[in-house]
Nucleic acid binder design. Sequence first.
DNA 1: CCATTCACTCAACGCTTGTTGACTCACTCA
DNA 2: TGAGTGAGTCAACAAGCGTTGAGTGAATGG
Lengths: 188, 188
Amino acid sequence: MSTPHQSRADRRRATEARILDSARELFAEKGFERTTIRAVATAASVDPALVMQYFGSKRELFSQAVQTLPGPLTATDADELVDQLLASLGLKLGGLPEGALAMMRSMLTDQAAADHVRAALGRQIDSVGAALPAAEDAELRAALVVTALLGVTIGHRLLGLATLREVPADHIAALLRPAIKALTGPQG
Amino acid sequence: MSTPHQSRADRRRATEARILDSARELFAEKGFERTTIRAVATAASVDPALVMQYFGSKRELFSQAVQTLPGPLTATDADELVDQLLASLGLKLGGLPEGALAMMRSMLTDQAAADHVRAALGRQIDSVGAALPAAEDAELRAALVVTALLGVTIGHRLLGLATLREVPADHIAALLRPAIKALTGPQG
DNA sequence: CCATTCACTCAACGCTTGTTGACTCACTCA
DNA sequence: TGAGTGAGTCAACAAGCGTTGAGTGAATGG
């Protein structure tokens, strides 16, 4: 009753997308290990074997369903930097995509996810450090800024702390801004 | 050749402690789900069935091996507060006990661990919020401080970011202090 | 219209897991 | 010394997992 005439290729693409959506949602909610292919298949109204046929393995399904964390930044001055940072960790403007949450959810218990997140954070630390005034501790300060924001995002989106969930993201960003500036160095 | 004469009760206590140590270590390294009773038993040079006999279930073993995160704080002024916070999340003076790391490792993928961490963080947020000057956003500011430090600890101890691992904890604490003060409010 | 392709299902495999009950044997103690 | 307790082992179960190969039936294309 919904789609009156669909070609075979269209149906194929649609089911594949349905599987990916279900996978992303379950991976974000339960993490890699606790998400079963059978559960993904059920959520997508499909046989488990089809998931294997399309994606080859659970690992490959994870890779395709999940997105990496935001990459390096392009800001050059401190104010712009803070904005980009807050946005990239989902503390402004709508939050992180579900695929990034799925990756983060698994980062403490899955080797591959940990490597991925470590690399992404490393790139972000490097670009923040490069944008900082040439202090001695530029890279360390950058790492503290990035991990501190990571912690706020975890508390907010993955742990669902009540205190943070009730507050609009812009308000959180506004409170964080002076703290980040204090972290990036006395000079500004 | 090591312990020449040990009573039955002594041996029993020793094996139980050996099992708990192995469990704590493995839970901290791999998390609840990926740690198997068989692996704990092997690491403790013991049969898996003995672990069950002593602790009843994997969940109960986890509860007994793991320690909760540090509880509420007792500081009344801002300077003391910052010190206690940094210490309680392992950023000063030797770091968190392994049992707390085990709990944190599982907090994103295990319901019970998540509940435990949420509760501990909530208590900590409350006590920080109470110690803050009576600003409107006291509780929110407290939550941001606590989760930011949580993030630094995760990056440092659970993800093992190189930039943070190479630096002494006191140095990290020194850099974080002004940022925390900026977060807790303009008035200090 | 018929042979072919291909999305999709079914049933089963091999493995690992938590968990259990029966067993062995060294130590305790009367 | 000899009965009994209790620490520790062994072998197995049932359930759940990722994964596989054979099968089905409708859309396709000549």
